[in-house]
Simulated assay, not measured.
Amino acid sequence: MSTDDPSSSPPPERPQRRIRSFVLRAGRMGSGQVRALAELGPRFVLPYAAAPIDAAAVFGRQAPVVLEIGFGMGQATAQIAATRPDTDFIGIEVHEPGVGALLKTIGEQGLANLRLIQHDAVEVLEHMIAPASLDGIHVFFPDPWHKKKHNKRRLIQPALVALLASRLRPGGVLHCATDWEDYAVQMLEVLSAEPLLANSAEGYAPRPDYRPLTKFENRGIKLGHGVWDLVFLRKG
């Protein structure tokens, strides 16, 4: 008979869960998205690697670089890239249907200034984006986690904002947008508290021309819902 008594042993320590920038949800893939992933993914999707990206080598030119976190299905991302051909864009999204949809659009519109990464944004920022290397960061309509008990899961938190600010060049732009007022209040408070950032406006900013109105946003505006843009600059 064994002398070990499991009941007398201390319980094993539970590993701490690392906060991620997303919650993975299932989604259906259309045939066009599947085809785009297979045919265009090898060219336009950058594999995750724990080494800084050489944007000039990736895009084949020297140009301003803007990172977008969570592009959804990619309609706004594609529109911004199409209207700003002199800027290179890197979009991060973990949901495969969105990646496939944006790849399909890239193929249809011939968007050479856009690359995608299908990985957790925090790890990408930590390992693939060098300090002071970005000219802009876009965070449009992140999950609001509207229940108060879930607010701690929101993406825009002090630690992440400090990381975002460190990846911007002096004068670089951090542009966030949300259609949840209490999240806008939190964003303004957190962004204003980051010492590397300065608000470009007195409070919330007018929507910059480069950020297109989405169908969802247009519908909300017609119903009287608000949208809040926050545009902060990296201090020199």
Rank of each mutant, 00 (worst) to 15 (best):
A159K: 13
D86S: 12
G91Q: 11
L116W: 05
A205G: 01
V161R: 05
K148R: 15
E96K: 15
R211Q: 05
Y183V: 06
Y183Q: 08
S31P: 03
D120T: 09
E93T: 08
T77N: 03
P208Q: 08
F22Y: 15
G41D: 08
V99L: 01
F216H: 13
G171M: 03
G224T: 04
Q109C: 03
L46R: 13
I80V: 15
A55V: 06
H150S: 05
G107L: 03
L174A: 07
V173H: 12
S200N: 08
T77L: 15
T87S: 09
P11K: 05
A177P: 04
G100M: 02
G203P: 09
Q62E: 14
I69F: 06
R35G: 00
Q16V: 14
R169V: 14
R167F: 08
L230K: 12
L24I: 11
M128P: 07
V161I: 13
E217Q: 09
R18Q: 15
A130D: 02
R169Y: 02
V122I: 15
H127T: 12
H119D: 08
R61G: 10
A132Q: 13
I221K: 14
S21K: 08
W145L: 01
L188R: 10
G100P: 07
F59E: 07
R169D: 04
V122K: 15
I80A: 04
L155K: 12
H95F: 12
P11F: 04
V227M: 02
P142H: 07
Q157R: 15
A56Q: 14
L213N: 07
R211K: 09
I80E: 10
A201D: 14
A205D: 10
L191P: 07
L188A: 09
R28L: 06
P85E: 01
G110M: 06
H127W: 06
L103A: 01
G70K: 12
P6F: 09
G41F: 03
H119F: 14
P142L: 03
